[in-house]
Amino acid sequence: MTLSSQRRYLHPLPDETFDELAMRALPELEPSKASEQLKSWNLHIFLRRPPGVLLGSDIVFIEDPA
């Protein structure tokens, strides 16, 4: 059974920050641009307390929604 393609995501590594994950996910972009791009795909991480702090269980999307 082949699974249909879905939006790609990463889990954070232990104690990884959002900016670090952004650089890992989007190494071709400048760090600030990578963070900003990733932010727009992952508003759920910034709409909670503390905003922008990655939790180990997070789903972090690394591409546009379909």
Partner: peptide, 22 residues
């Protein structure tokens, strides 16, 4: 386990801090 719940200070409950390996 929970990926959404918060405590009385609206902080994520402990389970949300667990990474996938845990």
């Amino acid at each position: 386990t929970s990926f959404v719940d918060v405590d009385e200070d609206l902080r994520p409950v402990p389970s949300r801090w667990a990474h996938a390996g845990e």
